[in-house]
Amino acid sequence: MSYKQIKWMILFIPTITVAIWEYVRHQFLLPYISMDLGNWLTPVLVYIVSITLLTRLFQMLERIQKELENARSAKAALEAREELARELHDGIAQSLFLLSVKAEKLESGNDMKQQEQHVLSIRKTIHEVNRYVRQAITNLRLDRDVTADGNQNSPSLVKQVHAISKDIRTPIQIGWELEDHRQTDKEKIELLACIREALINMDKYALATEGSITAIGMSHSWKITISDNGKGFEGDPFVKKNKFGLRIMKERCHEMGWIMNMYRKDGRTIVEIQKGGLI
């Protein structure tokens, strides 16, 4: 019996039962059963039918719903595995193959300048592999908020940012006014990766004693500002040899269609990531 048939039977069985009972009572049982007794017997009969027949139908309905939930869970798990396999293939496996090719070139090369370029290229590839691994882990460990009706919502950005800020030594002040309930999972993953990279640089290289994160805007237009009182930088940080993390961060923003700026102002290093028009 299908799910739809069970629902229709649950709706119609009490009605049909009462209709048949009333017809039989008025056509055949009036000489034997008084009106008052018949009125009392009607709810008793409906109760008996509900206990015997409807209870079984409800059990069948619950079993079908449970099977549907299990099927959805299995499908979600399969999709997650396929997504992870795609990320491992497209990101990590290809990068490791490229890394092996570059290592062979490094071994066979004699030119010191060329060898230095190969080393820098290998280091960049290692950073990219690290990026792919962190993104895959983020996709798998992404927490879900559950609403009152049992539906799963996309993870709250501000909760994830607070969790990231607790992993670094620099104290971080967070002012979050971004309406992120309409952000896609892809946008949240990319944003979290950029924020994590900025905080790691702040903690590892800037020697900052305090930092801040502010976020304003809505789903279609927003700006996130990350600042610290560290030692800062000179020149263009994106062209320096060892700043692979910053370059990957900028490439990530470019791929998402966001604008990223990094500059010094009033003794502070400021990283801005912006989507949409000016705020």
Rank of each mutant, 00 (worst) to 15 (best):
I172N: 09
K241V: 11
G217H: 05
A136S: 12
W258H: 00
I200A: 00
V133Q: 02
G175L: 02
H220D: 15
L99P: 02
T225C: 15
H89P: 00
M112G: 02
I10P: 04
R134N: 11
E197M: 03
A148S: 12
Q117Y: 04
E128C: 06
W40I: 14
G245S: 05
Q183W: 09
M35S: 13
E104I: 08
P155S: 13
Y205R: 03
E255V: 10
T209G: 13
V119T: 07
P31T: 04
N110Q: 14
L99K: 02
H127K: 04
I174R: 03
G257D: 02
L96N: 00
L84Q: 10
N151Y: 10
G245E: 00
F233D: 01
V119W: 05
M218C: 06
G217E: 07
H254V: 01
L246W: 11
K159Q: 07
Q27I: 11
Q94A: 13
A76D: 07
D203V: 06
P237Q: 11
T184A: 12
E104D: 08
A77F: 11
K113N: 08
Q152A: 13
K75Y: 05
V239T: 14
H127M: 05
Q183S: 09
K124D: 11
I6Q: 12
E272I: 13
F28W: 14
A80M: 09
N242H: 10
I51F: 09
W222A: 01
K66G: 04
T225G: 11
M9V: 13
L45G: 06
A85I: 10
F244C: 02
Q152I: 06
E177N: 10
E107L: 14
S221L: 02
Y32R: 06
T209K: 12
P14C: 07
W40A: 14
G217M: 04
D149A: 01
E82N: 08
V24T: 04
A208V: 14
N153G: 04
K159R: 08
E177R: 03
L37M: 09
S95N: 12
D167A: 13
D180H: 01
G276A: 03
K223I: 15
S50P: 02
N39M: 11
S121V: 02
Y3S: 12
S108L: 12
H254G: 04
Q160C: 05
Q115K: 10
R63T: 09
I48S: 06
I168Y: 00
S227R: 14
L106A: 10
T15A: 13
G109N: 09
A77P: 03
A77G: 05
Q27S: 15
K124V: 02
A19M: 13
P31E: 06
H89R: 09
N201T: 01
G235H: 07
E116S: 08
D90M: 11
Q5R: 15
Q65G: 05
N130F: 04
E22V: 15
F12N: 04
I200L: 02
F12Q: 04
L192C: 03
